[in-house]
C-alpha cells in the first residue's frame, strides 16, 4: 500500500509538471520563454514518472534502465535546448517586446557563426526578423 501511494505521488507530480510544460509552451509569448518552460518541466516530469515506474516494478533490471534513461535525459535535454536556443537566435527569432535586457544583441558574427565576447561590427551582426519566415518561398 505504501508503495502504491509512493508510485502514485511520483507520477502525479510528474504528470503535473508535464501539463505545466504544455501550458507553458502554449502561453509563453516568445520562443526562448517557451523553451524555459519545456526543457526542464518536461525532463523533470519524465524523470519522476520513470522513478515511479521503477518503484512500481521494483526489479533491479528496471532500476538500472530507469537510471540510464534519467541520466541520458539530464545530459541531452540541456544540450538540445542550448542548440535550439542558439539556432533560434541566429535564425533571427525576435525576443518578446517585454524583454528588459538583451546582452546577446550584437555579439553573434554572421559570417563565421561565432559568438564573441566583444561587440561585432554592425554590418556583420545577426538581425532579428520582423515577422515569421516559417516557410520561405523557393528561390
Amino acid at each position: 500500500m505504501a508503495q502504491t501511494i509512493l508510485v502514485l505521488t511520483l507520477m502525479l507530480i510528474g504528470a503535473f509538471l508535464m501539463a505545466l510544460a504544455g501550458l507553458g509552451i502554449l502561453r509563453m509569448p516568445d520562443t526562448f520563454l517557451r523553451m524555459s518552460a519545456t526543457a526542464k518541466a518536461g525532463t523533470l516530469g519524465a524523470g519522476l514518472i520513470l522513478l515511479g515506474a521503477a518503484v512500481y516494478f521494483n526489479e533491479f533490471a528496471i532500476y538500472t534502465r530507469a537510471a540510464a534513461i534519467i541520466v541520458f535525459l539530464l545530459i541531452t535535454a540541456p544540450v538540445a535546448a542550448h542548440m535550439i536556443g542558439r539556432a533560434a537566435y541566429f535564425d533571427g527569432v525576435p525576443l518578446w517586446k517585454g524583454t528588459i535586457q538583451d546582452d546577446l544583441h550584437g555579439h553573434y558574427r554572421r559570417s563565421t557563426h561565432t559568438l564573441e565576447s566583444g561587440e561585432v561590427p554592425a554590418q556583420d551582426q545577426v538581425e532579428a526578423l520582423s515577422e515569421s519566415d516559417d516557410f520561405p518561398e523557393e528561390e
Partner: peptide, 9 residues
C-alpha cells in the same frame, strides 16, 4: 538550463 526559469543560450 535544468533549473526552471533560466536557460543558458
Amino acid at each position: 538550463t535544468l533549473t526552471p526559469g533560466t536557460l543558458s543560450l
